[in-house]
Design a protein around this nucleic acid. Structure first.
Length: 634
DNA sequence: CTAGGGTTAG
């Protein structure tokens, strides 16, 4: 026996095969060892090997373990031929095993597996399930749903797995109707208590923006495990109920039920980043450490991102520094973090360091580098990186890279160059790219180009309230009130409604939310009084509200009043009111901060001697002693 | 006769 194994070891397969005793004495463990040995050496299975097996069941078991352990698709093809020749393929167990292997990851060869599936004479439910699941993981999920229908049509009633796969197909193909049908079947057949199905349903309603339905499914679950909670938390983040995600974590941590796991923490760190909730983020960090999850590279990468997005670049660097292994995601997170916090030069430095340690940059690394250049006004450097990314690193610029370049050129006033760049990009420019250029037109008060950009947005049928607001801003900044009226009328006709911006501030781990002219907060009277007081103080220090930031062509005094109650100002006032002097005030805003609020925060940081950090949808603005980290490169 | 399956970083 030993000799045979050593022959295998030295890749002498044919000699080894010849020496295998053809008696019944060969045991199952022997054949499994042979199978593993072959797999270990990536050796193709040799057909005569199996023909000589002692009994049929021995051969079956060997084949199954061999199929399961095959490391290459080409070996599976060879086994396939062998199975056909020996009629082993008609064995349902072996066929199912074979089909799952070629249809599911890591091979996922859909054409091959579907062809094989179609050629099989008797389809049972397991085969259907495997095939539907394979489709649900592929790009042709609609075929999976068709197969599910076909199965039901042929009188095979769907079980939990069929329904799960059909549901995943509906999610992937984005069909609300199909998913609802599956939910109906789940309900009808009494699978509603299946934890896996309910979690998938939560996810289904989540991606279809039906938050209440998702909550309903979750509430009706008889038992909720960690994954079910994770699905809910993911749903809350996707559906702008990020604060509820923090609450959900609270409940999980306090109750005796399922423990938050690494995935829960990933979601929570994202939630904290979205809300600029540094304290809560630190709490999750502590939890991660206490559970021994701090060795996970995924978690650490997300921690780096969370701390940077919360404007705490020091803490981000701390985590980054202590990571024993750093991959491309780690470096990209650090680079993007430096970039969004106004450290463009350091972002470039980190990019150089990354190459010194031999990590190849990818597309997202360049997004970080280029956005760093654009935020810090490093025009030449940005152009240089954009030029060399394809030539030297083989990274083809995507739409985000073009977005960064448009931003870079746009801020620098090279509006026509930016327009030209968009016109000759190989990918079709999306709304975000045009919107970036529109933002630049706003900064440089270029109404003519602004109009052209909006036309492109209309052509894409992607115009949003925010775009018209930018255009309005351009007109009002140059005092063209006639055009302002025209646009407002147009907006009314098109029934475009402005969505109120929302700002959040964290106090003692609790998130407070404000929208413009908000009156919902329990301490609203105090807050408004404080804000009026702040406004008076700042005016003494020379703050003049930038009235062009407001749209309406009303009298100046009224404009000043409207501007006074922007959501970020309310949040800042609340921060000044409720924290002792010297405490940092950190605010998150879902849209972009306006010029006026920018000035407001800048002067406030000097007058009240507070560090104010505002994170809008693009970056963090650090205000300290009357200065801003972005050097007013707004 | 059963198993199979749901959430996942920049």
């Amino acid at each position: 026996m030993k000799t045979i194994f050593s022959l295998f070891h030295y890749h002498q397969y044919s000699i080894a095969t010849a020496r295998i005793p053809s008696t019944n004495s060969t045991t199952r463990s022997f054949w499994s060892t042979v199978a593993i040995s072959l797999q270990h050496h990536h050796a193709p299975p040799s057909a005569p090997l199996y023909l000589r097996t002692a009994s049929k069941s021995e051969a079956e078991n060997t084949l199954i373990s061999l199929i399961k352990s095959c490391a290459r698709i080409s070996h599976l093809c060879q086994i396939h031929c062998y199975l056909i020749r020996t009629s082993f393929l008609l064995n349902p167990t072996i066929f199912l095993c074979f089909l799952s292997r070629i249809a599911l990851p890591p091979f996922q060869n859909i054409p091959y597996s579907y062809r094989t599936f179609l050629n099989y004479p008797n389809h049972n439910i397991s085969l259907y399930n495997t095939m539907i699941r394979a489709f649900s993981l592929s790009d042709s999920s609609f075929l999976g749903f068709e197969l599910y229908r076909e199965m039901v049509h042929f009188g095979i009633s769907a079980d939990a797995l069929s329904l799960l796969s059909a549901l995943k197909c509906s999610i992937k193909m984005g069909s609300l109707l199909n998913g609802l049908q599956v939910h109906g079947m789940i309900f009808r057949d009494g699978h509603i208590s299946d934890c896996f199905l309910s979690s998938a349903l939560v996810d289904f309603y989540s991606v279809n923006r039906k938050y209440d339905e998702a909550c309903k499914v979750f509430a009706e679950m008889s038992y909720r495990d960690t994954v079910a909670w994770n699905s809910l938390i993911s749903c809350q983040i996707k559906n702008k109920r990020t604060r509820d995600a923090l609450t959900a974590f609270d409940i999980m941590e306090r109750s005796e039920g399922p423990r938050p796991d690494d995935v829960t923490c990933l979601f929570l760190l994202e939630a904290c980043a979205n809300l600029n909730a540094l304290e809560f983020g630190e709490r999750v960090h502590d939890y991660v450490t206490s559970c021994g999850l701090s060795g996970s590279i995924k978690i650490c990468n997300t921690l780096v991102a969370m701390y940077s997005r919360c404007g705490s670049i020091e803490k981000a660097y701390e985590v980054f520094k202590n990571m024993p292994r750093k991959d491309v995601v780690t470096w990209s997170s650090m680079i993007s973090g430096l970039a969004s916090n106004g450290y463009g030069r350091d972002a470039i430095e980190a990019f150089m360091e990354m190459q010194r340690v031999g990590i190849a940059p990818d597309d997202q690394t360049f997004t970080g580098v280029l956005s760093g250049c654009s935020h810090s006004g490093l025009v030449d450097e940005g152009l240089m990186f954009f030029d060399c990314m394809r030539k030297e690193f083989g990274v083809v610029p995507n739409i985000y890279h073009y977005g960064c370049m448009v931003d870079l050129m746009g801020r620098a006033g090279l509006l026509d160059k930016a327009y030209e760049l968009i016109s000759r990009m190989e990918a079709k420019p999306d709304a975000a790219v045009w919107r970036t250029l529109l933002g630049a037109c706003r900064i440089h008060k270029n109404a003519i180009l602004g109009e052209r950009v909006v036309e492109h947005l209309i052509e894409l049928k992607a115009e949003e309230a925010g775009d018209y607001v930018l255009l309005l801003n351009i007109y009002s900044s140059i005092g063209d009130w006639e055009k302002v009226m025209k646009i407002r009328k147009l907006m009314k006709e098109k029934r475009i409604q402005t969505t109120p911006a929302c700002s959040t501030i964290e106090l003692n781990g609790k998130i407070h939310e404000f929208i413009a002219d908000d009156v919902s907060h329990p301490r609203k009277k105090e807050i408004y009084e404080k804000l009026d007081e702040i406004n008076d103080q700042l005016r003494i220090a020379g703050y003049v509200s930038e009235i062009t930031a407001e749209l309406h062509n009303t009298d100046v005094e009224k404009k000043r009043t409207t501007l006074s109650y922007h959501s970020e100002k309310l949040a800042i006032a609340f921060g000044v009111l409720s924290t002792p002097p010297g405490t940092k005030i950190r605010v998150a805003k879902d849209l972009r901060i306006c010029v006026d609020c920018h000035n407001f925060a800048k002067i406030l940081s000097a007058v009240y001697n507070r560090v104010v950090i505002i994170r809008d949808r693009h970056r963090s603005h650090h205000f300290r002693e009357g200065h801003c980290s972005c050097n007013d490169y707004w």
